[in-house]
Amino acid sequence: MIGVIVSVAIGGMAGTLLRFATGNWISANWPQHFYGATLAVNVLGCLLIGYLYGLFLIRPEIPLELRAGLIVGFLGGLTTFSSFSLDTLRLLESGQAPIALGYGLLSVVGGLLATWAGLVLTRL
């Protein structure tokens, strides 16, 4: 069990650092689109979780440590639906309701489609 805990911790650190770097890069290049980093990591995370889930279904011999480290740790640290909620609220509070609505719909629908696409990729 300690191996799984260590794998999740290492994966979480890596995912969190990638999310932090993405946020900094988006803020430096497109500060008016601060929500772009959250959208990007959520859709990417959904694509990856769909792909990994499908891969782990067809390759059950992959060690639990690796599976937990990638899905619970890395993707748990990378994806940020709590930040999604805050970004949406900030858009609404700043009077940008159409952008907030589009952002919410794109995040949810894009995430679902990306998860499906990731799962389909494992079946190719």
Rank of each mutant, 00 (worst) to 15 (best):
T16A: 15
L106I: 13
W116P: 02
L101D: 05
Y53D: 11
R19T: 08
L47D: 01
G95R: 10
A68P: 01
V4T: 11
G36N: 08
S85V: 09
R59Y: 15
A114D: 03
V109R: 00
R67Q: 14
V41Y: 07
S83G: 15
W116Y: 15
V72R: 01
A37Y: 07
A40K: 06
T16Y: 07
N42E: 07
A68W: 01
P63M: 02
L91T: 03
R123Q: 15
A114T: 07
I71E: 02
G110I: 05
I10T: 05
S94W: 00
R67N: 06
L48R: 09
N24Y: 02
L112R: 02
R90D: 01
C46H: 04
F20Q: 06
S7H: 03
A114V: 08
L105P: 01
C46Y: 04
G15D: 11
P31S: 10
L91A: 05
L70W: 09
P60R: 07
Y51H: 08
A97V: 14
V6D: 02
G102Q: 03
V41G: 11
A117V: 04
I5N: 09
S82Q: 09
G36A: 15
I49E: 03
G45W: 10
Y51K: 00
W25Y: 14
P63Q: 12
L18N: 05
H33E: 12
L86E: 08
A28I: 00
A14G: 04
L39E: 10
L47W: 14
A117Q: 02
E65V: 14
R59A: 12
A37L: 03
Y35Q: 14
A9V: 09
R123G: 12
C46T: 05
A97R: 10
G77A: 06
A97Q: 13
S107K: 02
N42K: 08
N29S: 14
S107M: 04
W116V: 11
G3V: 06
T122C: 13
T80V: 03
I58Q: 15
G15R: 06
L112G: 09
I5A: 15
Y35C: 05
I99K: 12
F34H: 12
F34L: 10
A14W: 06
V72Y: 00
V43A: 07
A97Y: 09
V108A: 06
V43T: 13
G69M: 07
A117F: 13
L89M: 11
Q32L: 14
L48F: 13
T80N: 13
G104V: 12
P98F: 01
T88G: 11
L112C: 10
S85H: 01
M1Y: 08
T88Q: 08
L47Q: 00
Y53P: 00
I99A: 11
R59G: 00
V41D: 02
G23Y: 10
E93Y: 01
G69I: 03
I2W: 09
W30Y: 13
V108P: 01
G73T: 04
L124N: 12
A117I: 08
L66G: 04
H33Y: 11
G3N: 11
G102E: 06
I49F: 01
V108E: 02
G104D: 01
L48A: 14
G77S: 04
L119W: 14
L106T: 13
A114L: 06
N42V: 06
G111V: 09
V43C: 09
T79D: 06
L89G: 04
L121D: 00
M1I: 12
I5F: 15
